[in-house]
């Protein structure tokens, strides 16, 4: 158990109470075979090192996602090689490619079916904003219109290294979270909503075209000069 990470700098500085045990004392205890850590660190360590992605490819980025799991890039170095075909067993939804309006309800349904704790990576320009296909009549302008996204990876498609970088960023984000307070993971907060509404197919567009609880369109502040 010697590879339990020390407290993350964010979490150490963020806690209000002064540390009861100094790092030196903790290190001394560890040499004696006594592991002293915080529940929070242990919980975050466990969560961050076994992020199992959903085996879910949408478009071009999915090929690079597969390439990331192959021998050269070897995503298993980060504990994420276990691609699960079922959303019930997965922790991470990598939205790898263009989300069309026809596909969006299915993506949201998959997200609803995943158990907490769960994370979402928007991989590639299309998943972020519609990308090159943004002006298409059947293209959703970003999956963050319907579900919360943790990490955005730009690129068209992002290289496998970029996906690994995004995964590391996600792990750092997980390690920086607290069990209580405003920086708690989504599922530990009281205001967490477990299910996100699934839009329906309308006569011209999805109904509704976005979930206002998750997404507000950015607006421009016009400066009078």
């Amino acid at each position: 158990m010697s590879d339990v990470p020390s407290a993350h700098p964010d979490s150490a500085s963020g806690s209000a109470a002064p540390a009861l045990v100094s790092d030196q004392e903790r290190e001394e205890l560890r040499r004696q075979g006594i592991l002293l850590t915080k529940m929070e660190d242990l919980y975050n360590w466990g969560r961050s090192n076994s992020v199992w992605p959903l085996n879910f490819g949408l478009a071009c980025c999915a090929i690079e996602m597969i390439a990331a799991s192959m021998a050269r890039f070897d995503i298993s170095r980060f504990g994420s090689e276990v691609y699960r075909p079922s959303p019930r067993q997965a922790d991470l939804l990598i939205v790898s490619g263009t989300v069309t309006k026809k596909m969006a309800p299915q993506v949201i349904r998959l997200w609803n079916q995943m158990p907490e704790p769960k994370y979402c990576i928007a991989m590639g320009a299309c998943a972020i904003s519609g990308g090159p296909f943004k002006q298409g009549y059947n293209v959703l302008k970003g999956i963050d219109r319907f579900i919360p996204v943790d990490i955005y990876i730009p690129g068209c498609p992002p290289r496998p290294e970029a996906l690994l970088n995004g995964l590391i960023a996600l792990q750092e984000k997980i390690r920086g979270q607290h069990l209580t307070g405003p920086n708690a993971p989504r599922h530990l907060r009281a205001d967490d909503r477990c299910e996100y509404p699934v839009p329906e197919f309308g006569a011209h567009d999805l109904e509704p075209p976005a979930n206002p609880e998750v997404f507000q369109p950015p607006t421009i502040v016009r400066t009078e000069k």
Partner: peptide
């Protein structure tokens, strides 16, 4: 079909 219909021809 159609889950990846990205309107290539219209664009």
């Amino acid at each position: 079909f159609g889950y990846l219909h990205r309107n290539h021809e219209k664009l």
